[in-house]
Design a protein around this nucleic acid. Structure first.
Lengths: 149, 149
DNA sequence: TCATTACTCTACTTTTTCCATAGGCAATAG
DNA sequence: CTATTGCCTATGGAAAAAGTAGAGTAATGA
């Protein structure tokens, strides 16, 4: 289940992606528009900045902007920053692998095998859908790819 | 992320599926084999029974058996019983739909649209993989289907 | 310069969910 | 009848999620 943090983050980035030619938006405006607690949102945006997705400016007329093109910011990246690995089990994750403490033999674990498939299919969607794609429904790369089966 | 409950449930059902011609297994045996707390496991098996996946018998020589063929018990069903809807967001769920309280227009919500795709692809795997499939790697229906792209 | 604005950072509180345990009741085999 | 095993309800503790507080720092602009 997606956390509220991740949802706020996605919405904030989508909002920033709609802004014309690098105009900054302030935390307060984002909070107002998506009815999120301002202080909570600050923490989220700060984290996104630390991961290189946002630039910020302090003081009067400060705010946030995307640090790179919207087409290069994927849902997968955002969700991983906020909620951690996509995989339903740590042992089925590529980016955040951890051994199951209670698993006898990882190579023959059928649960792991299935969850690995789930991870892969989630990645196939989330890592190939950018916030730019999301803003142009029917147009994005991953949208077409996912429709093709 | 899959809860421990779901993981215990999957393992218990896989274990029961390996048992020959309807022989019963006791909670204690399952708990021993998968190093799960017995009392906790009881709750889990009870819930699976209430959802029609298991039969049980009380008293001496009691225990649990699958209530139907292993090929008719899917990962999707088990996970939903234990952890609820597959979808990352309630508003993107088919089996457990709930409106987002903070969402303006559901039909144009791009986050929902993406998460719906994620749900669909999870369902495509989990609802088409039975515990029988999981026991015969390389053989199951969903295994072949998922490999074909 | 100096007050104001708005991001930065650390710490804390509250709420919710997850994991597990406890103990009595009910059925069944022997 | 009685030992065993599942059935059921209640409760406790830990951890994670969600939100709050407040002092600090940089930029602006009057």
């Amino acid at each position: 289940m997606l956390s509220k943090k991740a949802k706020y983050a996605l919405r904030a980035l989508l909002m920033l992606a709609e802004e014309k030619d690098g105009r900054m938006i302030q935390v307060q405006d984002i909070a107002d528009q998506q009815k999120a607690p301002k202080k909570f949102l600050e923490l989220i945006l700060l984290e996104l900045k630390k991961h290189g997705l946002l630039h910020s400016q302090r003081g009067k007329r400060g705010g946030y902007v995307l640090a790179k093109p919207a087409s290069e910011i994927t849902f997968g990246h955002i969700v991983r920053i906020m909620d951690g690995p996509l995989a339903p089990l740590p042992c089925a994750s590529l980016t955040g692998y951890r051994k199951c403490s209670d698993c006898e033999d990882e190579n023959t674990c059928s649960i792991r095998r299935v969850m690995r498939k789930v991870r892969d299919s989630m990645s196939e969607i989330l890592d190939k859908t950018s916030i730019a794609d999301a803003l142009t429904p029917g147009g994005g790369k991953a949208v077409r790819a996912a429709a093709g089966h």
